[in-house]
Amino acid sequence: MAGKRTVLTAGLRRLSVLLLEMRDDAGLSKEDVSARTGINVTTLYRIETAQARPQRRTLMTMLDLYGVEEVRRDEALELLSDAQKPGMSRPYEASLSEVYAAYINFESVALSARHYQTSFIPGLLQTEQYAMAVIDTCMPKLEASDLERRARARMDRAAVLAKDEPLELWVVLDEAAIRRMVGGPEVMSGQLRRLGEATKRKNVILQILPFDAGAHPGMAGSFTILDFPDPTDPELVYVEGISGDALVEGHTEIRRFGVMFDQLRAMALSPRDSAVVIAEAAAAAEAMA
């Protein structure tokens, strides 16, 4: 069942990386570990790739075999405890894809997010009415209850911008997103007012990529680069697409998206000029409402 899934969290990812390092340090293959502990090779693979959370007795067996010193053993047990805590996505997981649920969990603990969006107002900055209109249009066969849960998840995500140590959000937004009349003039008017208010936040930088910028590297689709406060958590990229979303890791891929974002923000209007364009779009929508 969807609610029974092991959805990826930062704690689970840290634990999987640590266990892989411990096995490598012990000079053991997955087959060696399986032969000496009885733990299935497939199970080991799933644990080391953060697709499954180990039971405590399984973890203790692995730590005993690896000859782990007390400090690292305590670290692994603490990470298991963290991995057992539900992520921010937990109340909504039955209505969300596994990748999107995992992304919400990572976003909730991230230090910063660099986000390029080609079609919509970014989820963290959406009003509930706009979110409902977007979700209903993109997923027309969705049950009303699932529609409401998805919209509520999107609203709850925005808490990361107002917590004690808020997420640092840098958005490059294609001009099409503020010109497209999603949900009608009244909904769009409210949404653009919300967007204008967001530009006044100290932890939000918003730039509009104007139509006259021409061709640009973000035309292939939207993406978000997440950075984390814990140095053991590598950067992560969330890529949105019609065929499905994906979480991307790896230095080469992360660097590629970082270069793309730098190019996009260089081509976009300044934050000050972007705020003016948003205000003009809001006024136009209000006049139509």
Rank of each mutant, 00 (worst) to 15 (best):
M288R: 15
R13H: 10
P234K: 06
L142I: 13
V7T: 10
M267S: 15
D24A: 12
D24Q: 12
M60D: 15
P217E: 03
A151I: 06
E148P: 04
E69D: 14
R154Y: 10
I178Q: 11
L161I: 08
L15T: 02
E235V: 00
E48Q: 15
P185Y: 08
A113E: 01
H251L: 09
E70F: 02
R272N: 12
V17T: 13
L15H: 06
R23N: 03
A159E: 15
A289Y: 11
E143G: 03
G241F: 06
T224A: 10
L236F: 12
P91N: 04
P140G: 07
I208R: 05
A162Y: 13
L18K: 00
R193D: 14
A285W: 06
V33L: 08
L169S: 06
P210W: 07
K141R: 15
A110G: 03
S119K: 11
S29G: 12
A110F: 04
E78D: 13
L44Y: 09
K141S: 14
E21S: 14
G3V: 06
S274E: 03
A284K: 14
A133N: 01
D245N: 15
I47Y: 13
A35C: 00
A287M: 07
A76H: 00
H216P: 08
R180K: 13
G250T: 08
H251K: 15
L18H: 00
R23Q: 01
R265E: 14
P229G: 15
K163L: 01
S119F: 11
Q207F: 07
A35M: 08
A26T: 12
R73G: 02
A285R: 12
L125W: 00
F261N: 04
A159S: 14
L209C: 03
G27Y: 05
G218H: 12
E235L: 11
N40I: 06
M188T: 04
E253Q: 14
R193G: 07
A283F: 04
E168F: 07
L44V: 12
D233P: 03
V160H: 00
A281P: 04
A287G: 12
M139I: 05
D233A: 08
T42C: 09
P91V: 06
P229F: 10
P140S: 05
A26E: 10
A94V: 01
V41M: 08
G11H: 02
Q84I: 04
A213Q: 12
L206I: 13
R152D: 05
V259S: 06
E48G: 06
A220S: 15
D230I: 09
G250R: 06
R272H: 14
S243C: 05
T252C: 01
G218C: 11
R23A: 03
A279W: 03
A76G: 00
Y116T: 01
R13V: 03
F211S: 06
G184A: 07
A83S: 08
L167F: 01
R46A: 05
N40D: 15
E280H: 11
G221T: 11
T127K: 05
D233G: 02
F211C: 09
A289T: 13
E128C: 05
F211M: 13
D25Q: 13
A76R: 02
A159V: 08
E93P: 01
I278C: 09
M1H: 12
S89V: 02
V33F: 07
